Amino acid sequence: MVPQLHIHPILWLFALTAVLTGTLAEFLIIFFIVVVHELGHYFTAKWYGWRIRKINLWVFGGVMETEEHSSRPIREEAWIVVAGPLQHLWIYAMLFSFKEISVVPASIIEIGLLYNTTILLFNLLPIWPLDGGKMVFLFLSYFFPFKLAHTMTIVSSIAFSLFAAVSFILFFPFTLSAVMLTGFILWENRLEWKQRYYIFLRFLLKRYLTETPEKSKIRPVIVSPSTRLLHVFFQFKRGQTHHIYVKPAKRGSDWLEEQTCLHAYFKLKQHQISAGELLSRSK
């Protein structure tokens, strides 16, 4: 099934600029490369059984929206992220083949090679929501709790974006496309930062509604009796099941299952309850 494609307004703006400036051929080449790149993500996600909502296309990349919300294994998501950049390899092979048999003008081949390299390198930058930024998030998620990893990813993404923008202004000539692209990236990071609490709650809700894999690694979380549930959740990591130990405890077996905590928070609406209170009620 072909995914639903959504064209971001900035891409329409670039298309209009291409028509007015006589660079429509270059725009079509970029559009082709971006679509192939995103289809790499899409078909790999479908291979793993992900539910795809739509693909948002914008200049030099896109964003695939799914229903998974960080509930799948990190390795699985990493392959889906990497699948996009891997598509550029066969695009290189196609362009070099066309060059050998001379079926496409050499000027078009050179433009194709230039934009294929540019889009590939651009998407590997450690900037959210580019593939490089997503790989940074997955790497940090392996070592840190979800909320901390997400916050670190956005902060580092904004810092790198500003550094890249200043460097471009200082060392490269001014172009309207570069300004629009920089503005778009910063805007996306701003939105991600504003929605970070919602994204974290969505991660928790998906975790609550999704059955825990039998082979999931168990990691203890040690908290004080006065720790609120939300602060307990701050320590939750992807790909791991947590046993919440409330210290000091009367017995070594005084602990809560994470599903008990999530159930109390989402189903029973006990948003202000502490771990100690929940433990006493669960006995």
Rank of each mutant, 00 (worst) to 15 (best):
V2T: 13
Q4M: 04
H8F: 02
I10D: 10
L13P: 11
F31S: 15
I33Q: 12
H37N: 11
L39G: 15
F43M: 12
Y48F: 15
K54Y: 12
N56K: 11
L57F: 05
V63Y: 10
E67L: 02
I74Q: 03
I74R: 04
R75M: 08
V81W: 01
G84H: 01
L86W: 02
F98S: 13
I101D: 13
I111G: 05
W128R: 06
M135Y: 04
V136C: 04
V136I: 09
F144Y: 11
T151P: 08
T151Q: 14
M152L: 14
S156M: 08
S157N: 10
S157Y: 04
L162K: 06
F163C: 11
T175L: 07
V179Y: 00
I185K: 03
F200M: 07
L201K: 03
R202E: 12
L204C: 06
R207D: 00
Y208Q: 04
L209T: 11
S224W: 05
S224R: 10
R228Q: 12
L229K: 07
L230V: 08
K237C: 12
K237T: 05
K237M: 13
H242Q: 08
K247P: 08
P248V: 06
G252N: 15
W255M: 15
L256W: 01
E277R: 14
R281Y: 11
R281G: 14
S282V: 07
K283E: 11
